[in-house]
Each structure stands twice: as C-alpha cells, then as structure tokens.
Amino acid sequence: MSAGSAGPLIELDGVEKVFTVRRRAGRLRRTRHEVRAVDGLTFQVPRGEMVGYLGPNGAGKSTTLKMLTGILVPSGGRLRVAGLDPARDRLRLARRIGVVLGQRTTLWWDLPLADSYDLVRRMYRIPPAVFRANLARCTELLGLGPLLDVPVRQLSLGQRMRGDLTAALLHDPEVLYLDEPTIGLDVVSKATVRTFLRELNTERGTTVVLTTHDLTDIEQLCRRVMVIDHGRLVFDGDLAGLRAAADGERTLVVDLARQLPPIDGVPGARTVRVEGPRQWLAFPAGHSAAPLVAAIAARYPLVDLSVREPDIEALVADLYARGGAARPQPGDEAPASP
C-alpha cells in the first residue's frame, strides 16, 4: 500500500512506559512511585500476521496497544507503525488502522447502527463504492443486515461487538488492533467473530494484533503468540513453542485389550493414571509420540490411542507464575490508571 511495505509493519525497539503514581502515605503525605508499565519491549510484526498478545491483568497489554495507536506517548525507546511515529502522527496513522476495544464502543449510542457507519464513511473519507462493498461484506459475514436500523443502545453485547468490528474495518485498515474482542460474548458470537477474523486475515491480508484472556481465541486464530508480564516480553513464538517453553507435558491415552498393571519400561514416559483397560502416560511436550506408541504396541495389546496436548491455560499460568517469581518487586503491580 505504501513505502515501507518491505519492512515489518510494526516495530518496537526498547519501548518503555513509566507512570508516576502518587500514593497516600499518612494523612496528608503522598509519596511518588514510578511504575514501569512497559519495560523495554522489542518485537516486530510483519504484514499479514495475526498475533496474540497475552498477559495477566496489569501486565502492560493495553498500555502497549495505546502506544501503538499513538494515544499514549512512550517514555523511551523507538516505535514505528507503517513507517509512522504513532504519538507524533496520531491522526495520520488513525486513517490506516482499525481499533476495537472490547469494553468500549465507537458506535453512537442513541442512533441507528447505519448512522454510525455513515459517520465513519465521512470521517475516513471512504469512496462510496469501497464503503458499499465493505459494509455489504461485513454485514453479511457478521449477520448485521437486520440490525442496521436499530439504535445501538438496543443491541445485545454480541451484536454491538459485531457492529464495532464492522465500524473498524470499513476504511480497509492495514492493521486491526483488538483489545479483548470476545470478552463477555456467548459461544455462538465468539465463533462468528473468530471465523470473521480468520477470513479477514487470510483472504484480505489484514494484519491483526489481539489481546485476550480467552486462550481459545489464541488457539484458533494465532500462529504467533507473545506473552507479556510486568511490562516485559516473556515469550514470543508459536503455540508449539509456548508449550515447550512452559515445560508442558503431552498425554498419551491408550486403550488396551484388557485391564493390566501400569505400563512401565517405556523410556521418556510415565504412567500417571489407570482406569480399567485405559491408561494415561505423560511425556515431555517437545517429544514425538511415535516411538512411545511403537514401544507400547510391541509389548502390550494396544486397541486404540489418542494424544492430548497440554492445557494452554495451565501453560500460560505457569509462565505468569515464573515471570512474577523472576522479578519479585513489592508494589510493582503496574496499574493502568494511576
């Protein structure tokens, strides 16, 4: 779309954000604390990627997002999005990005959904043909057709979220930032939103950065995961890498012909559970299941088997716990709102 399409779309180099927080320390006294909400972040996101940005509450996710869109100014480091410095070129950048904040809405509360879209068309100066095509596509994929005449205040949370997604995409943004896009949604709405995002990313090549606490979002959407804790990147890679990094264990479930004592003598695996003819064996996440299966099949009457991946929630909880233990600083909870 523009110059710089060769380089990464998003570039962070040692980005920091320090907030000064005043706390009560007695009747009148206030002490000033520095809170490093983001502490030396360095990463790049190439065009067309779909990245999951994970972290516990207060880890610095929203702060990072606000710096990426230019509404917060970094305290240090270098930050570029589509070749622009977001804080300095906030309005210019705004035309090229889409933002959906799951807990807030950009829609006009007391007016029909269509009125908000008309305003978006004028705000981003979208050519009529592009506007019509994008609106038609989004309303069809997200099932918004019958809702265009409904005042936003009458929409359900799921409908409103789909409405906000549409509003963020009418101007063909190069990158879409999503802050907890599935928060509070029911199963069907979540599935609709995820399918839509996947289509957006694969068919239209829109770069997507999403923060979430719902790990299913990550599993279903993102090839790349970044985990941030205490303002630092503690993991950056794919899901398999996350599993390995967290020392997760995979589980091999085998069904034998009959009830037998726990399987032993299989290198790299240990039996963790026996229930009738079914047995569960744990083995390291980085290892292949094939040699285990071969070893068991050679010595036991194997009827059926399945492999279970480690629970991603447990993996991330483990990462968070280790991140916290690594930097045990009192009063370091990094609130987003001082």
């Binding site: 869109t69 807030r104 809405t105």
Partner: peptide
C-alpha cells in the same frame, strides 16, 4: 471512564 480512548483513535479533531 477512559472511553475518551475511542475518540482519540478517530482521525478527527
């Protein structure tokens, strides 16, 4: 409430 963040993301004055 912080909803102002939404307004600041718009390319409008």
């Amino acid at each position: 409430s912080g909803d102002i963040a939404v307004d600041l993301h718009r390319p409008a004055d």
